[in-house]
């Protein structure tokens, strides 16, 4: 039986090297985290300015989890990131301006205004657009892995879900099927300690959500979700294990949701002290410090990178704002996919 185990933080650049991360790769991960947070900060402002319709969710506190896992994936791997995982889209190369256009419901958002917020994905990047119903993407992620297994491809599916959504039956059916068939899927539980206003003790009665993996016949591991290298390391191990035919792993990334459930929610129910404590473990600040200590990233180098990201996002916002609104006359198009070729041999 698998037992959930805690992972240790990485402490040296040697460890990173062993993971196959070079200096450029490490700085790239830092940049992806900055872009992720930057897009959400801009989105927040745009929302308050009334430029983003509907609701607006951020993943503040989850950047290490999202970018760390996505960085451990290969391009041919696939996944179903959720509403705190915008960093996955960024890491896999969705251009920031298209994400902002998505938020604003414009034509150039991946969902072309047909769906909002992070309900988007580019299939070219092997990502599948999430639905609101949580965690309904879990069985789908298992289906991606099923396709890889049937075709004997060395590809892995990554399946994200939250601590709250873990309570629903979809999670059970997905993990059970994946375990039974030893499918190449990695379950990533973003445990940000709250499901809207509901705290962990009202969500689940086991010590760690990763403990549940044992019930499905695979390993579970708890990782510090604010430490991007620890996340990367565990995700890489799990993904490569799945690729080798070793079956699923459940990686539980523990962090704290640093903002309300969505912008309308001030999270009054989260104790101030808890927020203060986790603020000290901000994933971006932690990684910045690590980079300066272990790969000699100078203050000048890091702030230049930060300025570049700011400029990129300012440009992205302009471009997104100039993206046209979708054309209502096209509303009824695309409900169905058109058959590829006309059906030959038709016999009425």
């Amino acid at each position: 039986m698998a037992i959930a185990r805690d992972t240790e933080s990485l402490s040296s650049s040697l460890d990173a090297e062993q993971l196959g991360l070079d200096r450029a790769g490490l700085l790239g991960m830092y940049r992806d985290m900055l872009v992720t947070r930057g897009i959400e900060e801009r989105g927040h402002i745009l929302y308050k300015q009334g430029k983003i319709p509907g609701s607006f969710y951020t993943g503040r506190g989850n950047e290490a989890g999202a970018v760390g896992v996505a960085s451990a994936m290969q391009p041919e791997d696939a996944g179903t990131p959720l509403h705190r995982d915008m960093g996955v889209h960024v890491t896999r190369g969705v251009e920031p301006w298209r994400i902002l256009a998505q938020y604003m419901g414009r034509e150039d958002g991946p969902a072309r205004g047909r769906d909002g917020n992070v309900h988007m994905a580019l299939i070219e990047q092997n990502l599948v657009a999430m639905v609101s119903h949580l965690p309904a993407m879990m069985p789908v992620a298992v289906g991606l892995a099923l396709a890889f297994r049937i075709r004997n491809e060395r590809r892995v599916s990554v399946c994200w879900y939250g601590d709250g959504a873990a309570a629903r039956g979809d999670a059970h059916e997905a993990m059970n099927f994946a375990g039974v068939r030893r499918l190449p899927v990695v379950f990533v539980c973003d445990n940000n300690q709250y499901a809207y206003s509901t705290p962990p003790q009202l969500e689940y009665a086991c010590a760690n959500l990763a403990d549940r993996a044992a019930a499905y016949g695979f390993d579970g591991v708890v990782v510090d979700g604010t430490d991007i290298l620890a996340v990367y390391s565990e995700a890489k191990r799990a993904i490569e294990k799945a690729r080798q035919g070793g079956g699923p792993t459940l990686v539980e990334c523990v962090t704290l949701r640093m903002e309300g459930h969505a912008v309308h929610d001030n999270a009054f129910y989260v104790p101030r002290e808890l927020l203060d404590e986790w603020a000290k473990r901000d994933p971006i600040a932690r990684f910045r410090l690590w980079l300066s200590e272990h790969v000699q990233a100078s203050e000048a180098e890091l702030s230049e990178l930060e300025e570049q990201v700011k400029a990129l996002l300012a440009e992205a916002q302009k471009r997104a704002e100039s993206s046209p609104a979708p054309d209502p006359s096209e509303l009824e198009q695309g409900v169905y996919a058109e058959p590829e070729q006309p059906q030959e041999n038709a016999d009425a």
Binding site: V140, L146, A147, S157, E173, A174, F177
Partner: peptide, 24 residues
């Protein structure tokens, strides 16, 4: 290619959806 699934309609339909998205 003939997969006996657990008693699990969610896994069956979700599994079909995911594998269809990957080209099966």
């Amino acid at each position: 290619r003939v997969i006996d699934a657990p008693l699990s309609e969610i896994a069956i339909v979700g599994g079909a959806t995911g594998s269809a998205l990957m080209g099966l």
